[in-house]
Design a protein around this nucleic acid. Structure first.
Length: 571
RNA sequence: GCACCUGUAGCUCAGGGGAGAGAGCACCGGAUUCCUAAUCCGGGUGCCGCAGGUUCGAAUCCUGCCAGGUGCACCA
């Protein structure tokens, strides 16, 4: 816990001197805009108000009280106008922190604040019988990163893939398959063929609206357990799931549960009954409605007039089941921002049903992926398949390898890591709430603020370490000499902030913080690399720098792993 | 009509109420007898959408407006 103890120590001392609580002091501490101003800064404006003295005077006074005070962490304190700047002791950085990172290796950066707590993450949730489009990438990639981040904070994480395997679209699919379907084509390329049927259905239904009714009837038959409907559904489901799992394997993602919408069919009536007992339900035009108007939300339907339950009824049943099963401390729904209202209604209903844990349910929304000229639409066939995106990215990575490093071994594995990394990182780097315009050029860009940039930095370090090992020199987790250059200090400070970034990412459910941090770290490393030779440096310096780059490698690898991205040793 | 989200450099975006608003891309120029040039260095641009307000201090918080996106009862 690298720089955190330093921060806590400052907060404690400030608390003793000012009468603020330690927590208050800690949250007031900030990171100065320039590293020449120290590692943490304390602005005195708040105190100025309380003490009715100019902030400069308070800063000067406090600086006086800190004068001569040092500790294992603290080197010195300086006043700069209304600020108090704290400088960490370099000996701590190089002789304690650095060896610590090497010792902890893969577990460096992890925390234990979540120990004993369970977090559920509901993510990905593709619709069976529709191909996996780039639109589904977001939930999948963000959800996976959140799972890993929470685990790194000590939580027990349960990843749930709430498969979209129920609903009227299966009626449509059954109608289309019975009318136009050919088993041989289905067997050949199931998911794409089902997709073509789905698109075909909507084209035909334009001309013949009665198809929609027929679809509703077939869905009704499915709900009542009709054998033919059931068998077709099961068949479509199996084929799709197989296809999705191939994709997940490729992305290195696994789920703890694949319980989907269809798995709650037997709990829907009980859920509606519960709502009825609580007096939340009224009848309207033959349908059952949950009245939320008194709570500032539009009412929502729990059951259609034809007796079929709806999305929100299923989500209610699922939430109740999950709490019973996992007793979670928090449940995240990584679902698009267009469903914000749905989740407001869902959480409000859970609360009104008397579940106090409703407050621990969180919607983690993200923006839409769209084309320049409008949104993607599965029905109209206006989609880009994730498979195609991943294949092209890997292919391009492969071409670049061929051009830049033709003698590389394991070209395929590296191309996969780089191509997939670029796509995943491209999704995680920006604030998830923003909409994304799909652009092949951007997806296939491997320079600048990208995963390959970080991976390349990692590979360079591996190369240094390989050469050092060949010369029988290995980084040794012993106290090192102090490293003199500014680039070196910048680097090690960055290493020390790793767990703070993980913490922040978990606090806001925003993996982008870690992605940005890694970019910054890689940038610092590349500057170091250009200005500070490692292997040709003199004995002591070489030892220290070897440790430093070994530590950077650990953080880059651990950080990329948190985002679900591999770090190849060469590229 | 109502609600939510977004608006920062030519483009894509960072920016934790605080110290002169930052990156990447694109464009121009430079760096390799030396650890991988998928790298590094230099070059410049901003009514932080607009108008008010809160504050010692606002790109950041509040209100209104404008623009774009997304939702709002029998889809999921």
């Amino acid at each position: 816990m690298p720089l955190l103890p330093f921060k806590k120590e400052i907060a404690a001392r400030l608390s003793a001197l000012t009468g603020m609580t330690a927590e208050e002091a800690e949250t007031t501490l900030e990171i100065p805009p320039d590293s020449a101003l120290g590692e943490y800064a304390f602005p005195c404006f708040h105190l100025a108000r309380r003490l009715k003295k100019p902030p400069q005077a308070i800063a000067a006074e406090l600086a006086g009280q800190f004068a001569g005070l040092t500790s294992a962490y603290l080197e010195r304190v300086e006043q700069a106008g209304p600020y108090l700047n704290f400088f960490v002791r370099p000996a701590y950085l190089f002789q304690e922190l650095l060896p610590q990172i090497l010792r902890e290796g893969p577990s460096y950066g992890t925390l234990d604040e979540g120990a004993g707590r369970t977090v559920l993450v509901d993510y990905s949730a593709p619709n069976i019988a529709k191909p996996f489009s780039v639109g589904h990438l977001r939930s999948t990639v963000i959800g996976n990163a959140l799972c890993r981040l929470y685990r790194a904070c000590g939580y027990k994480v349960v990843g749930i893939n709430h498969l979209g395997d129920w609903g009227t679209q299966f009626g449509k699919l059954i109608v289309a398959y019975r009318r136009f379907g050919e088993p041989a084509l289905l067997a050949d390329d199931p998911v794409h063929y089902l997709y073509r049927l789905y698109v075909r259905f909507h084209q035909e239904a334009e001309k013949a609206p009665e198809l929609e009714d027929e679809a509703r009837q077939w869905f009704r038959r499915l709900e009542t357990g009709d054998r033919e409907a059931r068998e077709l559904w099961q068949h479509f489901r199996d084929l799709s799931l197989e296809n999705f799992q191939r994709l997940y394997r490729c992305l290195g993602i696994s789920f703890d549960s694949y319980m989907g919408e269809s798995d709650y069919n037997d709990q829907l009536e009980a859920t509606i009954e519960l709502a009825r007992q609580r007096g939340l339900v009224k009848e309207s035009e033959g349908a059952l409605v949950a009245d939320l108007e008194g709570h500032g939300l539009p009412s929502c339907l729990l059951r259609k007039k034809d007796g079929a339950a709806l999305y929100i009824t299923r989500d209610l049943a699922a939430a109740i089941y999950r709490h019973k099963t996992y007793a979670f401390h928090r449940m995240l729904y990584v679902v698009g921002a267009e469903q914000t209202l749905h989740f407001q209604q869902l959480f409000k209903l859970l609360e009104l049903l008397g579940f106090d844990w409703a407050a621990n349910c969180v919607h983690v929304p993200f923006g839409l992926i769209h084309f320049k000229d409008g949104r993607m639409s599965t029905r109209q066939g206006k989609v880009i398949f994730l498979e195609e995106v991943l294949e092209r990215a890997v292919e391009l990575a492969r071409e670049i390898i061929e051009e830049k490093n033709p003698s590389l071994e394991e070209k395929d594995a590296v191309a996969r890591a780089v191509g997939l990394g670029a796509v995943i990182f491209g999704d995680l780097i920006n604030d998830r709430i923003k909409d994304v315009e799909f652009d092949w050029e951007k997806v296939l860009d491997f320079a600048g603020e990208t995963a390959p940039y970080i991976q390349y930095s990692h590979a360079r370090i591996c190369s240094i370490l390989r050469r050092a090992a060949a010369a029988k020199e290995l980084p040794d987790p012993q106290p090192a000499a102090l490293l003199p250059e500014a680039e070196e200090k910048t680097l090690i400070i960055a290493l020390g902030r790793f767990s703070e970034e993980i913490n922040r990412a978990v606090r806001d459910n925003r993996p982008s913080y870690v992605a940005r941090y890694l970019l910054e770290l890689a940038r610092s490393f590349n500057r170091f690399y250009h200005n500070c030779p490692v292997l040709t440096a003199a004995e002591e310096l070489r030892k220290g720098r070897l440790m430093l780059v070994a530590a950077v490698r650990i953080v880059l690898q651990n950080g990329l792993a948190l985002l679900g991205i591999e770090a190849p040793q060469e590229m």
